[in-house]
């Protein structure tokens, strides 16, 4: 597998960074047993500087995953539990009159953190949702006529219950589009669940270590951005996107924003996999997470929902010129 390294050795700088990243994955996987693929995808998303949406049933480890990621990467972390009566101010912060200094002082809300877990995002009212999503897109908050920058890096990990659960306000397509990836955790397999039970019964708590500094992380992001995408590969991505627009199977085809998301995620994925160029398999690996929540089926039967990205992948030959 490593023979291309022989042909073209990567930067001498990389191995150290790569090692750090491998450690981050390893650490996270010790907490979320048997979820290596999802952990890798989540890290890819952060590496590509995108926001992550985790969608699954309660109790599947959504919160645990985001908490672990924050810890491993050494990011400032806060959690906002979204409820139907949560107001934008509860999240963004508020100006309060200070009697001593006789001025208004700004008390920043929990959003002023590097990694914000927006738990059960679809429980909040649309007003609050849109305040959050605006902050996500602009990476700044405007309050009482003053614009305040959010810390950098800034990530939002949203979690949500599947749509059909009661008491939820589903996110509209335009807002779903703001999330770079959407992943689902799913049930662990038997082995993983058994070992999870064992560790908890034995009272062993994995204390996750922080493996890198913020500066390291930003450098990693830089390096991921430099991953090479050849013309052949860009053509492959364009073929995928064009197919979604010209086929009659998709009511909502992929937007140019989605095209950009595909490329940046594929770059990060290639980087995680120790390569400085993208191959079609990278695109195929991240496409379900990047595209599924942006696509909508043209046919009304819900059975085909969920396999849309699969349909898309199977329609396009990555090798054809």
């Amino acid at each position: 597998m490593d023979s291309y390294n022989l042909l073209n050795p990567p930067d001498t700088h990389y191995p150290m960074l790569h090692n750090k990243f491998a450690m981050a994955i390893e650490q996270s996987c010790q907490v979320l047993i048997g979820k290596q693929q999802q952990v890798k995808l989540a890290l890819t998303c952060l590496l590509a500087n995108g926001h992550l949406l985790i969608e699954d049933l309660p109790g599947m480890g959504k919160t645990t995953l985001s908490h672990t990621l924050a810890k491993v990467l050494g990011l400032e972390y806060s959690r906002i539990q979204f409820t139907s009566d949560l107001l934008p101010a509860d999240m963004l912060g508020i100006n309060i009159y200070d009697n001593n200094e006789q001025t208004f002082r700004f008390h920043p809300g929990p959003i002023f953190n590097q990694l914000v877990l927006a738990d059960e995002i679809n429980r909040a009212s649309p007003k609050t949702q849109s305040a959050l999503l605006e902050a996500m897109e602009e990476r700044q908050v405007s309050l009482d006529g003053k614009t305040r920058l959010l810390p950098s890096p800034f990530f939002v990990i949203g979690t949500q219950n599947p749509m059909h659960q009661s008491g939820t306000y589903p996110l509209p397509e335009s807002q779903l589009d703001r999330f770079l990836m959407r992943i689902q955790l799913g049930y662990p397999d038997k082995e993983a669940e058994k070992s999870m039970l064992k560790t908890q019964l034995g009272g062993v708590q994995h204390d996750v270590e922080t493996v890198m500094s913020i500066a390291d992380f930003i450098e990693l992001q830089e390096a991921a951005r430099r991953v090479h995408a050849s013309d052949e590969l860009l053509n492959y991505i364009l073929r995928l996107v064009t197919f979604s627009r010209e086929s009659n199977q998709f009511a909502n085809p992929l937007s140019p924003r989605a095209t950009k998301a595909l490329l940046s995620s594929a770059k990060a994925w290639a980087f995680i996999n120790n390569r400085d160029f993208i191959i079609p398999e990278d695109v195929q690996a991240i496409l379900p997470a990047v595209a599924e929540h942006r696509l909508r089926s043209a046919s009304s039967d819900f059975s085909s929902q969920g396999s849309l990205s699969k349909t898309l992948l199977e329609a396009i030959d990555p090798i054809a010129a």
Binding site: L7, P9, S230
Partner: peptide, 23 residues
């Protein structure tokens, strides 16, 4: 697999690589 590696390299890797070990 050797052939595939070469193919991947030639198709997807950066073209103007420098260095003595590069074929």
């Amino acid at each position: 697999s050797q052939l595939t590696q070469l193919y991947l390299r030639l198709t997807y890797q950066k073209k103007q690589s420098t260095g003595t070990s590069v074929l």
